[in-house]
Each structure stands twice: as C-alpha cells, then as structure tokens.
Design a protein around this nucleic acid. Structure first.
Lengths: 324, 324
DNA sequence: CTGAAAGCGCTTACAG
DNA sequence: CTGAAAGCGCTTACAG
C-alpha cells in the first residue's frame, strides 16, 4: 500500500498540514516537530506524490520550451539536456509544451517560456513580450534571466590542462557558426594561452561542422596538411569523437602522440573521453527555476554554472615530457 | 481561466459524471447526450487535465523502463523513441522509473516493466518473474507481449525500392552485433532479392559499427577496395549518414552514381535522407498499452508495426536507367 | 507554531 | 442511461 501524508501525520502525531509544511520546507514549523516528522518520513521511505502536489498547488504552471531553429534535436547534447529539463519540470510539478517556431499556432496557455539556444533571441523575446509571457533562457542575453555553463572558463581550463601536460603545439577544432558558446570556448582557450608565463602560445583554430563527421574531417585534413599538434581541444564532445576517429584511421596513437580534450561532458560517447564537463542537471534546474521565477516577476538573474574537467584516457603528457 | 469538466457539465446541462463518461468513451451514455457533450467540449476547446485524471483514477500505475545494457542512450534513435515513450506515459497519466541494470536497488514499486532492446531478455524476465512484476517489451520474444517495427518487411521494401529504380549492384551496411533488428532487416533485404523474377541477386553485406563513423568507414573502405555498388541499403540512418559522408569525401555523386537508403526514419539527420521509416509514435503507444495491459494480465500480444519508405533526394535511378 | 477544512480536476462505485 | 457524492494525495488560506 502506498504510504501517504496521512500515514506520516498519524505516526508523527501531527496533522497532515504540518507534514505538508515540513515537506515544503516552510519556516513555520517547530524544529522539534520537524525532526519528528522527518524521522517518520525516513522510516517509512515516504516520497511525496508529484501528481497530487501539482493538482493541489493552486498555481499550476505550464512552461513553454522554445528551441532555436538551428538546434539539432537529435544530438546527444540536446538529448541529455532535454531529459534533464523534463526531470526538473516533473519535480516542480510543472507541465510543459514544446513550442513550434511559429508560436502563434499555440493554443495552450503558457505562464513562461524557456528559450533554448536561440540565435534570434531579441525577436523571440519581443514576440513573447507582446503576448505578455515572461521568458528566461539557456544562453546569454541582457535583460532576461539566463543560465549557461562557464564556456569561457572552460576554455581556460582546457588550456591550463593541456599546458600542464607539457603540450605546446595546440589545435582547437570548433564550429564554423558563430554560436556564443563556441566563441567563448575558443576565446577562453586562446586568452589563457596568450597569458602563459613563458612564451605566449597561439593555438591553430580550425572551423567546420559540429558533428562527429565534422570533427573527423577537420582532424583528418589538418593532419594530412601537415599540422602536427600534440594537444587538441574540441569545442564539443561530438567533434572530439570525430577527431579521435580520424586519428585512429591515420594511425596516430592517443594519448601517446596526441591528447584530445572535448567539451560538454558526454563521456559515454567514447570510452575514456576526456572532457570539460558541463553540469547539465544544474543548468536544467536553474533554467526551470529562472523560468518559474520569471512568472513571479522576480529580479533578473544571470547564472553561470561552473564546468569541470573529466579526466580520461585520451589525455596524456606531451611526447617526450613527463607529467607533473 | 482553465476550462474544466464542471464547466462542460454546466453548459451541456448534465452532471460531471456524465461528462467524464463521455471523455472516457464509456458505453453507458445515450448517443444524444454524448453528442451534446462532445459539441460543448469542442466549442470550448476542452482538454482533460492529465494530472487530475491520474490522481482520481484509483489505479495509478508506475511503469519501469529497463534498457538493454548495450543500448547507446545518446543515439538519435534512442532519443526519439524515449521522447515518444515519455509523451505516451504522460497521456496515460502513468509515472515511470528508469531502471538501473541492477534492479534489486530499486525501492519504488512498479506495476509493470517495459524492456527496451535487451539482449538478455530471458534472464531479465526471470528476475521480474521472481518479483511478480509483469513485463512487455520492445523487440521480439515468445511468451510476453511485444511490439516491434516490421524489420523484415522493411528490408523487403528496401530491396523492392532499389530494384524498381533499376539498381542491380547492391550493398548492405549493417552492424556487426547480432541484434534481432539488424538480422531481420538484412534477411528481408536478401530474401526479397533472391526471389527476384529475373536473375536472383545477392547483395554484398558488410558489417561494422552502428554509428555514423561506422557507416563512414564501411563505405569508404568498400569503395577503396573496389566495390562499386549503385544501390546501398543501410541498417540504420546513422550508418547511412556516415556512408553519405564517405561518398561525399570520395567524390561520388548521390544520387547520380549511387543511391542510399537508410532505416528508422530519422530523416532530420541528413537533408533529403531516404529511409525506411519506423512509426515510432505508434510503437511507443503500443509499448505502453501492452505494458499497462500486462498489469491486468491481459492476453499476450505480438504487435508488428508497419514501416514505410520516406523518399528523399538520396535515392535515384541506377546510372543509365530511366526511372519508371 | 499548528489544526481543521476546503479545494485542485477528475473518476467511479452506488443508487435510481 | 444519469446524478449525487466520495475520494485520489496533497496544499493553503483561515483560525487559533
């Protein structure tokens, strides 16, 4: 039998209202009472029913999600962040609608809209503005709440990591489109190298398609044209997977001859892939929080979520160097 | 203001119970009453609240989803079917838990489990059996309810399509792992060719990785080894994308010199991709229906969902032939 | 700080 | 065939 708030209330000797207040972390509960209730909840392995919560919360919100036109909805990254967003909305007991590019078609009421990697942000915000729907976005933009990974910092971390392994001949593979994230990752990478204490280094930067095939071709062509980097930083993990495929086909050993570092943290794409990992769950959580906050006209916030390097077997010391 | 069952009842001059019966297609409603209610619902653009439905339906179900160990959760196909499953569960107001490989860890109660592309089906069913949880699966297996696309028929359709375009030199790229779907697609393709009225044809079959890179390498190597097929059938769209990439790099024109046909229907992967398309929404719907049916110990059913060729610009008549 | 009670939008026995 | 009523598991003013 499913265990409910009523059962908790019984065993804790309080009312269901109090149990509810504990669940929701309301401040108006005596700490002793709170402890008792928490103990009973734990003992019984209670988990609140999200469905009932959603129904009873007066203010039920539905969030629109509006994805940029160019976004590849089949990419691994989209896949992962989408699932994280879904999970987050479920926890917040929030419904959602995925918006078509032409938003005027949409009948369902939306309380707020989350823009995801849209290039034409201004125009879309304008459309929302006219409909009186507040927005938040994953990315960067003045005047609205935003959340994004620390792309610039991640680029810097990539540089620092490769430098610390002794690499001096560096290659950066990125996308030819001027996405903010790509620009920032490249800028962070280059800036950090330029600041190097000894000789200031400049990476070779090559641009192409953002897919696995894009990375493959860039890497293959670069090598065949005589480039001999020992440290390669890719703007996405997909590109890194492609680059690794090309290196394998070229007979170049990784990480013996060449180290490869991706970005995003999708290390399941390739065994041992090293990557500057985004904290996708945190981004999704912030995104939903910001969008929900926008409904209440909360103050605009810009959240930058830290990234973190996941070491893998595609990273090693530069040939002839010892690691330190 | 959200429009509810009460409002419908008011305007239709009936009770909410009757409206509910109409919504749920219960037979015990006078057809005249039904028509009135339906009309009001339509006029007001009413959509039942799935959350409220779930809460009030006495029997709330939680479905476990158990994904095969080898399944690439980042692949486009997984992405698409996963989203279709989520949507279906939402419509059925069914909760779900994604199960880890080690199911003994799971605390939450599950009413049924949906197995997705598992290789070790027998063993998993056994585990479920011991826990008294019924199962259904996407794939094929005797003794449990199953749903799967018509892999064999799709292979036949691929053969028929390429033959009708005049292609006689055929290549099939597939995965090296012995997945049921891969085996069936290849078998259908080969069987259909062998039955050809004139000379019986045999395709060259090459096996490799199922990813884009796998398709790329198979295609490139085949061409460089002197294979000169004019019609290429790939077991997955991802492989087709890879093959198309290789052909582009080799300077082979598509569909001028070579036609390429994928499988799955993920035509957004590549502009103009021709593909034997699975009806993924239908599969997801059946899957959830079967799993929910298994709870009621309904009779075991095996559902095969038809596939359909999506024509694209990667398909054309064999060189020197006119289309008919 | 806490309880009693109403209500979220539906479904479903129970009567009639 | 249909209505009145209870109930799904929670949250939240309203009192105290």
């Amino acid at each position: 039998m499913k265990i409910t708030i009523g059962e908790i209330a019984n065993q804790a000797g309080v009312s269901t209202g109090t149990v509810s207040r504990v669940i929701n972390g309301k401040p108006t509960v005596a700490s002793e009472t709170r402890a008792t209730v928490l103990a009973v909840m734990k003992k019984l392995g209670y988990e609140p029913d999200p469905v009932a919560r959603e129904l009873s919360r007066r203010t039920k919100h539905t969030l629109g999600i509006w994805v940029g036109a160019g976004e590849n909805r089949l990419s691994p990254y989209f896949n992962v962040i989408w699932r994280a967003l879904m999970r987050e909305m479920q926890l917040h007991a929030t419904q959602f609608v995925e918006l078509p590019v032409d938003i005027t078609q949409v009948r369902r009421r939306m309380d707020a809209v989350l823009l995801f990697h849209c290039a034409d942000i201004d125009q879309r915000l304008d459309t929302l503005w006219r409909r009186g729907v507040p927005g938040a976005l994953i990315g960067h933009h003045p005047g609205v709440s935003c959340v994004a990974p620390d792309d610039m910092g991640g680029g810097r971390m990539a540089a620092a990591k490769l430098l610390s392994l002794g690499h001096r001949d560096l290659l950066h593979l990125t996308v030819s489109d001027e996405h903010q994230w790509a620009v920032d990752r490249a800028a962070g990478f280059a800036a950090s190298l330029a600041e190097g204490s000894s000789a200031s280094l400049a990476p070779v930067i090559l641009r192409g398609g953002g897919s696995v095939l894009g990375g493959y071709r860039l890497m293959r062509d670069a090598w065949q044209q005589g480039h001999r980097p020992t440290g390669i930083f890719c703007a996405t993990d997909e590109m890194a997977v492609g680059a690794l495929g090309a290196l394998a086909d070229l007979g170049v050993s990784v990480p013996g001859q060449v180290s490869v570092l991706g970005f995003d943290g999708l290390v399941d794409l390739y065994p041992g892939l090293a990557s500057v990992a985004q904290d996708i769950p945190a981004i999704a959580q912030e995104a939903v929080t910001l969008a929900l906050g926008a409904i209440e006209r909360e103050v605009v916030r810009h959240v930058v979520v830290p990234v973190q390097i996941i070491e893998g077997t595609t990273l090693g010391p530069a040939p002839g160097k010892r690691p330190h």
